[in-house]
Computed example of a mutant assay.
Amino acid sequence: MTDTYTLKLNDGRTLAYACYGRVEGKPLYFMHGFPGSRYQAALIHEQAKSAGIFVVAPERPGFGKTSLMPKRKITDWPNDMCQLADKLGHVRFGVLGTSCGGPYALACAHSIPSRLNFVGVVSGMAPRQDAAIRKGELPMLKALFALARIHPWLIAPLMLIDRVMFMRDAQKAVKVLAGMLSEPDRQFLASNTMVLTRLGVSLKEAYAPGICGVMQDAALIARNHGYALEGIRIPVYCPS
């Protein structure tokens, strides 16, 4: 488990983050999935180190050791990233969003393009207003985000059950969730103990402060993200 660092933001909140890869490498800010934490980027530590990339993995408000931010918006995130980059001395940096971290990476692409030298999205969560986007989604996720869109407290029972599972036995909880995935994903997790362990650590830490941050994040992902994709004027890489 890597060291945890914190930054006192201008509004008094605490932003927690961890670092991976090569310290002297090119900076890449990693936006974790849902739920997730600063430990999720451990999954790419070895690859980043080999490629000469310095990965900075911040936690969103209410996850892990980052302060909850009442009434926050996805479009608040780029300002937090600029403050973190200023602290670390990164005039320009890259952003990579995975799953529900995708909308946050795109918010940076929309709002602070002059600070970015790379934007990538891996398996990103698209805006959910279009029914075609939701087609084929896992039933549990579809129900979760549909309820969160109405009101975040509607998903409290689901999130409480999830939290109990991960706080009690994180690796076992990952195996339970893997049962809802596709067969190739299940086989991959079954054969890769390192990935299973790191996922468990990340998810357990996400729930450490409770479920308020998780519920808030689900509602934000389920609703309008606050920016138009057409307003992004810099390249965004989405590997297939």
Score class of each variant (00 low, 15 high):
165 M>W: 03
158 L>P: 01
162 D>E: 09
116 L>G: 01
201 V>L: 12
147 L>E: 08
198 R>G: 10
166 F>L: 06
136 G>D: 04
170 A>E: 15
139 P>L: 01
144 L>N: 04
140 M>R: 01
168 R>N: 14
115 R>T: 02
186 R>Y: 03
155 I>W: 01
162 D>N: 07
204 K>G: 06
171 Q>S: 11
125 M>A: 14
156 A>C: 07
146 A>G: 14
188 F>Y: 15
189 L>Y: 10
127 P>N: 02
130 D>W: 02
155 I>F: 02
176 V>L: 07
137 E>G: 04
199 L>G: 14
192 N>L: 08
131 A>F: 11
202 S>H: 12
181 L>W: 13
128 R>T: 07
187 Q>V: 05
169 D>P: 00
178 A>H: 06
135 K>G: 11
185 D>I: 07
158 L>S: 09
114 S>C: 03
146 A>D: 11
128 R>C: 05
187 Q>L: 13
150 I>S: 07
160 L>D: 07
169 D>T: 00
114 S>P: 02
199 L>E: 10
138 L>I: 04
182 S>P: 09
138 L>E: 07
175 K>I: 02
146 A>F: 04
178 A>D: 13
186 R>M: 09
118 F>L: 08
202 S>G: 14
130 D>Q: 00
144 L>T: 03
191 S>L: 14
186 R>A: 14
185 D>N: 13
167 M>W: 07
114 S>K: 05
203 L>H: 11
170 A>S: 08
121 V>D: 03
188 F>A: 15
168 R>W: 12
169 D>I: 02
153 W>H: 04
167 M>F: 08
157 P>I: 01
151 H>N: 09
136 G>Q: 02
121 V>A: 09
189 L>S: 09
198 R>S: 11
145 F>E: 06
172 K>A: 14
145 F>M: 06
201 V>M: 10
141 L>E: 11
